[in-house]
């Protein structure tokens, strides 16, 4: 019994002689979390480690972790802190631009000097033109940094951005003024357009039929309700064109994002966890 008691006491003492919260052990734990793709906890552990040691690799991993957990502004801020002496400097610059893209912070791209940019950075800078409202550069200049396999897709995005297939709200309104519902058909709202045509036709017929059969009160009621449907449809068609244009923009941006994501934003993948 004494042996068991001693074993327990010794085990406890041995257990507590290990400092699990030392910076080195925190780093080991953080590496494990990072490689398990538990970036949120890995970032917290790495930040604890950084209180004791300054390390560019760890700073890069923290920024990378923030990017993975979609805190892009914080990630960009940290990538920007990596010094030019670091081995990670050029990677960090690319990751910085990627974070700006993901944070939709397109204004920051205007202050970047593209003369000093690497090919990857140029690709990211040019990709930003596909999102922001700035004037697109010349087609050849835009496509220059991209490889042959990327050019085709980027050219499609470029041309789509240059001449987006928008619908005119004015034209949609005019169409619906001439033929009720046709403005909605113009904006691809087929079902709503046909419903509007039927409703307007129905109220016009009811009004006409009541006037014809000497029921002017009912005739005016149907005419009044029909007029509201008619005016509402003109207004709705114009708004529908606006919404259509926003949908075009949304789907275009989603397609660009998917393309960039599948190409990992033109950045080579890292092997931190072999």
């Amino acid at each position: 019994m004494i042996r068991i008691f001693l074993f327990v006491i010794i085990s406890i003492n041995f257990g507590y002689s290990q400092n699990f919260h030392s910076p080195e052990n925190r780093k080991l734990f953080a590496d494990y979390l990072f490689c398990s793709e538990d970036y949120l906890r890995a970032v917290i552990e790495y930040e604890e480690y950084m209180k004791y040691y300054n390390n560019d690799t760890i700073l890069f991993k923290i920024a990378f972790g923030y990017s993975k957990i979609e805190k892009y502004n914080r990630a960009a801020e940290l990538f920007n802190k990596i010094s030019i002496q670091s081995d990670f400097y050029y990677r960090a610059r690319s990751e910085y631009l990627k974070s700006l893209l993901l944070a939709e912070n397109f204004e920051s791209f205007t202050s970047i000097d593209s003369n000093e940019a690497s090919i990857t950075e140029l690709k990211l800078i040019n990709s930003a033109y596909l999102f922001n409202g700035l004037k697109l550069p010349d087609k050849n200049e835009f496509l220059l940094p991209f490889s042959d396999s990327e050019k085709n897709e980027m050219l499609k995005f470029y041309e789509f951005k240059k001449e987006s297939p928008y619908k005119s709200p004015l034209l949609a309104g005019i169409f619906s003024t001439v033929v009720p519902g046709s403005g909605k058909l113009y904006t691809n709202q087929i079902s709503e357009g046909l419903t509007s045509l039927v409703l307007n036709g129905l109220f016009a017929f009811l009004s006409y039929n009541n006037f014809k059969n000497d029921h002017p009160t009912r005739g005016w009621i149907f005419a009044g309700v029909g007029a509201f449907f008619y005016a509402g449809n003109i207004y709705g068609s114009a708004v529908s064109a606006n919404i259509y244009n926003q949908r075009v923009d949304y789907e275009y941006k989603e397609n660009v994002k998917v393309f960039l994501e599948t190409h990992n934003y033109f950045i080579e993948r890292y092997e931190f966890c072999k």
Binding site: E192, T195, S196, L199, F228, F229, A231, G232, N233, Y235, G236, V239
Partner: peptide, 11 residues
């Protein structure tokens, strides 16, 4: 508001 309502009613 009224125009929006009649457009909504059509939808």
């Amino acid at each position: 508001g009224t125009l929006l309502f009649f457009d909504r009613f059509t939808r």
